[in-house]
Design a protein around this nucleic acid. Structure first.
Lengths: 132, 132
DNA sequence: GTGGATGCAAACTCTTTGCACCTTG
DNA sequence: CAAGGTGCAAAGAGTTTGCATCCAC
């Protein structure tokens, strides 16, 4: 995955433009505006390559299939900026949350070594607080 | 799902005996000792019924398919006791954590209404802290 | 020009459904 | 005995792979 193909550019553009985590299907929908016949296969293959080269990050939320996001541009920090996610139960969109409650190590019983944590908030995004 | 079949009993027994969250495949492995020809189809069907009647709870962790657990017997509390999970990155087992850092509502940006949160700790369980 | 990238179709994995047979109450 | 449950096989949904063609460098 080294060449700058139209497909690759369109996929990256969709991720940067959205500012949130997208599923492969969402990416294809967005990128299809630039590359009409873009196949899902190509989306999956490009994402795999982009994740390997750390240009894109995977986002795994409970009960959902993997989404992808462009690393945030927070003050010079690069790719692996630690953050969490907000999942809107109404529109199903996923937004980054650049905050963290801190170490969770004290929650585990003795004998468990905590190395990492994932936190997901569920609720209504600003656009959906009044709906349904 | 109202009858007490051998299959149903074996599935429930495997969940209670384990004390942790099991995948459908793990459940079948355990329950197969009691019911040798137990089909995965039946496991899925019983789990669906058990979840509907709140006898069993689903556990969704990031990047993994749904697991199931018997509600804990913590001091008279019933089915929907709020808790989190610890995922061992070595043996892949999932353990309940009966602790919670409390409300996470303040982490979300203004305009987001937080209704619920999921927290998953990753690391080594007591049996795996020395291994690999 | 050539090796990497693409798109289609087929393969794969996980889960659900259709259907004939079996079991519980 | 009748309604519900089981097991097999097939169907679906999401993701990956094989292969001939295409295109970026």
């Amino acid at each position: 995955m080294k060449r700058n193909t139209r497909q690759r550019e369109a996929i990256l553009a969709s991720l940067h433009a959205s500012g949130r985590s997208l599923s492969p299907v969402e990416i294809r929908e967005e990128a299809s505006r630039d590359v009409p016949n873009l196949s899902l296969t190509t989306v999956y293959r490009q994402l795999k390559g982009l994740v390997e080269e750390a240009t894109v990050e995977t986002v795994d939320l409970p009960g959902q299939s993997t989404r992808y996001e462009a690393p945030c541009g927070v003050s010079g920090e690069s790719a692996d900026h630690h953050h969490h996610h907000f999942h809107c139960v109404h529109c199903e969109k996923v937004y980054p949350i650049h905050a963290c409650p801190g170490s969770m190590a004290q929650l585990a019983p003795k004998g468990f070594r905590v190395e990492r944590h994932d936190l997901t908030l569920h609720g209504r995004c600003p656009a959906c607080t009044g709906k349904g």
